[in-house]
């Protein structure tokens, strides 16, 4: 039986967090002339869209490169599944060669999707630099040596817990919840 979920970021806190992440990005990427923001399908795209919109407001630059990347074909769990995963759309309307690419995801858990995404990205060329931005970093759950460059919030979780990021566009409200599933 699942417990009542605990809100770990409400809509105001989420907005502040996104703003802070944007300022951190501006510190490192200046006017984004040589950078691109790439959301990881399916849920990272919501974060990247929000960040892209905020950056446009903050910097006045409406031409910051933005794309979506799907790593389904690059996952390492393909042969262990009963049913194949159906991919989402990849939209990279720019050449990643020599760009500074910021991969964006909502929750960093085992690190396996980020690993697959890096492979998927390299199929499009050789970026100068790849960084990782995550809204929620779940500690103590990593299977691979992957660390984010920008973190919205670090959360201590166990394997029986689940983090969900909800958005106005899809769930009607911006918030991040922690669900505990009792054994």
């Amino acid at each position: 039986m699942p417990d009542k979920p605990r809100v770990i970021l409400d809509s105001k806190q989420l907005e502040l967090t996104i703003n802070r992440l944007c300022y951190q990005l501006i510190e490192n990427h200046d006017d984004f002339a040589n950078s691109a923001i790439v959301g990881l399908q399916p849920r990272g795209v919501y974060v990247s869209k929000r960040i892209h919109e905020e950056l446009a407001k903050m910097t006045g630059n409406k031409n910051i490169r933005h794309g979506a990347l799907d790593a389904t074909f690059f996952r390492d769990d393909f042969r262990t599944r009963e049913t194949p995963r159906i991919p989402d759309v990849t939209e990279l309307n720019f050449n990643v060669e020599n760009l500074k690419v910021i991969l964006v995801d909502d929750v960093l858990f085992t690190g396996r999707s980020v690993r697959a995404s890096m492979d998927a990205l390299l199929a499009f060329g050789r970026p100068q630099l790849v960084e990782l931005l995550v809204l929620i970093d779940r500690r103590y759950t990593r299977h691979l040596p992957i660390m984010p460059n920008y973190t919205g919030k670090m959360v201590n979780t166990s394997l029986s817990e689940r983090v969900s990021v909800e958005w106005k566009e899809t769930e009607g409200k911006d918030c991040v919840k922690l669900h505990t599933v009792k054994k």
Partner: peptide, 19 residues
């Protein structure tokens, strides 16, 4: 519909996936 995704793969600079 799955073929649509593979058609995109065939247009990438590296036209190969490890599935």
């Amino acid at each position: 519909s799955t073929a649509d995704y593979f058609k995109k793969v065939l247009q990438q600079p590296i036209r190969k996936v490890p599935s």
